[in-house]
Amino acid sequence: MKAPRFHLVRPRDLAEALDRLAEPGGLVKVLAGGQSLGPMLNLRLVRPDLLVDVSGLPELRRVGREDDALVVGACVTHADFEDGRAPDVGSGMLARVASGIAYRAVRNRGTIGGSLAHADPAADWLSTLSAFGAEVEIASRSGTRRTPIGAFVTGALATTLAPGELVVAVRIPQVSAQARLGFVKHARKIGEFAHAIGAALVDPERGVARAVAGALDAAPLVIEDARELFDRSAGFDRTEAGRRLAAAGLADTVDRHLHVEALGRALAEAFDAPPGLRRAA
């Protein structure tokens, strides 16, 4: 389990990085935290000719607020959120998600941009940022573009990133003070990837009630109007949730049950349901 031979460059700035990414000939890969790419290299599942290490680029470590959104550089790490070095959208929402990703050693290096670009369906950022309606900012030598996560991720480990393109930032819309995040991650043990994720953001002031079922074998299932599945007096419509998950390709009944549970519990939390309606079952 040793990586095959490759070349590694560490560009000084974004422009140089984009130049190197555009180099013709052979497979060029971006290296950020290396927490997904590293194992894939060692297992020889990917054989790049050139690795462009972007983790030191100052442009990719910036965080700021712009047009009612939090703009987070692609190389901000999970630990940056967990420790509060990177600002949050709502009170501790991103920190909560970040601190549930993997183990501390992985969070120290793993980046938000790398996580989205890798597009593992079980990744925590992918589901939660979908619930936030976040956008991805992408740069290449020929310019920049912006795309909602839903359009960016096209399937398991698949995105619309073209050769020569780099994720530079993630734009997360601001939420109101009343906004509530529901987030449920079913994993076999602490620090493991999810087997089912339910995420829901309910922010009446901004007209948001979005739910996400994640850790499917495909891109997350986004339900733009979560009130179709959850009613504060009637509770969670698990039959309808099950129907939608089945339609999204989730055929296995046990898997579907777990996903329905995760979704129902996330919705109950986001809608601040009374205790009697908290449990999906």
Partner: peptide, 13 residues
């Protein structure tokens, strides 16, 4: 074939 699939108990378990 990796510890992502073969799960060992960790400190939390």
């Amino acid at each position: 074939s990796t510890f992502a699939d073969y799960l060992l108990p960790g400190a939390a378990e």
